[in-house]
Amino acid sequence: MKKMYVIGALLLVAMTWGCSSRGGSAAGGALGGAVLGAGAYEYNAHRQMQQLDQDYKAGKMNKQEYEIRKDQIEKGSLFQR
């Protein structure tokens, strides 16, 4: 959850910085879009991990399947480690 706050803070800073000048507007918009895209991707990885944990606890998969899927999610994420 703390990671989501960090991403949100970075987005806010990027948007504020980008609007401070004409030249910075385009760069800030691009940076803000990149941060927003990364944040959405990380949120999706977070939700996948939650669902994976629920499925494992419910007995829908064994330990080996759980570990394989967990590794796949972690490899595609910046923060899920």
Rank of each mutant, 00 (worst) to 15 (best):
A38F: 11
G59Y: 05
A27T: 13
A58K: 11
I73V: 11
K70H: 04
T16I: 15
G23Y: 12
I73S: 07
S20D: 06
A27P: 00
I73P: 10
K75E: 08
R47Q: 15
A58Q: 11
A26H: 09
H46G: 00
Q48A: 11
G29S: 06
K70C: 02
C19N: 07
K2G: 01
G29Y: 03
N62S: 08
K70I: 00
S25M: 15
S25E: 09
M15S: 12
G32W: 04
V13A: 06
A45F: 01
E74N: 07
K75R: 10
A58T: 02
W17R: 09
I7W: 03
K3M: 05
K3L: 01
Y56I: 08
E67A: 11
Y5G: 09
G28Q: 05
R22H: 10
A40D: 02
N62K: 13
R69S: 05
D53Q: 14
A27M: 12
Y43H: 05
M61S: 03
V35N: 02
K75F: 02
A34L: 15
Q51I: 08
A30V: 15
V6M: 14
Y43D: 01
R69D: 03
G24L: 05
L36A: 13
Q51H: 10
Q48S: 08
R47Y: 11
G28T: 07
I73K: 09
E74H: 06
D53V: 07
A9N: 03
L78W: 14
F79M: 09
Q80T: 07
L78K: 04
N44V: 10
Y66A: 02
A9R: 04
G24R: 04
A26N: 08
